[in-house]
Amino acid sequence: MNMASTPAEPVHPFDARGIGKRFRHAAIFGALDALHPGETMRFINDHDPLPLLAQLRERYGKTLMIEYRARESFAVMIDFTVAAGRPGDDTGSGCCGACG
Results as ranks from 00 to 15, higher is better:
Asp79Arg: 07
His47Lys: 03
Arg42Gln: 07
Gly94Pro: 02
Ala54Gln: 12
Thr91Val: 15
Gly85Leu: 02
Gly30Lys: 07
Ala83Phe: 09
Lys62Ile: 13
Ile44Gln: 14
Leu56Gly: 00
Gly38Asp: 01
Pro7Val: 03
Asp79Tyr: 05
His25Ala: 10
Ala8Asp: 12
Asp79Gln: 05
Asn45Leu: 06
Thr40Gln: 04
Lys21His: 14
Leu32Ser: 04
Arg24Gly: 05
Met3Lys: 15
Ser5Lys: 14
Arg59Ala: 08
Gly85Ser: 06
Ala84Asn: 13
Glu58Asp: 13
Cys96Arg: 14
Cys99Ile: 11
Arg24Leu: 10
Phe14Thr: 02
Ser93His: 12
Asp79Ile: 01
Pro13Ala: 05
Gly92Asn: 00
Ala54Phe: 11
Gly30Asn: 09
Ala98Cys: 12
Glu9Asp: 13
Ala27Lys: 06
Pro13Thr: 04
Ala8Gln: 15
Asn45Cys: 05
Phe29His: 08
Arg22Gln: 11
Met41Thr: 06
Met41Asp: 06
Ala16Lys: 00
Pro13Ser: 00
Pro49Met: 04
Thr40His: 02
Cys96Trp: 13
His47Gln: 08
Arg57Phe: 08
Glu67Ser: 14
Ala54Gly: 09
Leu52Asp: 03
Gly85Asp: 01
Leu64Pro: 01
Val82Trp: 02
Asp90Thr: 13
Ile28His: 00
Ile44Tyr: 09
His36Ser: 13
Pro87Glu: 02
Pro49Ile: 01
Gly94Cys: 04
Leu56Ser: 01
Glu67Phe: 10
Gly38Val: 01
Thr63Ala: 07
Gly100Pro: 10
Gly85His: 04
Met3Val: 13
Leu52Gly: 02
Ser5Pro: 10
Ser93Gln: 10
Phe43Leu: 09
Leu35Gln: 04
Ser93Arg: 12
Met3Asp: 15
Ala4Ser: 15
Lys62Cys: 14
Pro49Ala: 04
Met65Lys: 15
Gly20Ala: 13
Ala70Met: 11
Met1Lys: 12
Pro10Glu: 10
Met3Cys: 15
Phe80Asn: 00
Ala75Cys: 12
Gln55Val: 14
Arg17His: 05
Ala98Val: 13
Arg17Asp: 03
Ser73Met: 14
Met1Leu: 11
Cys99Gln: 10
Met1Ala: 15
Ala27Glu: 08
Gly30Glu: 08
Leu35Thr: 04
Ile19Met: 02
Arg86Asp: 09
Arg57Gly: 11
Arg86Ser: 08
Lys62Glu: 15
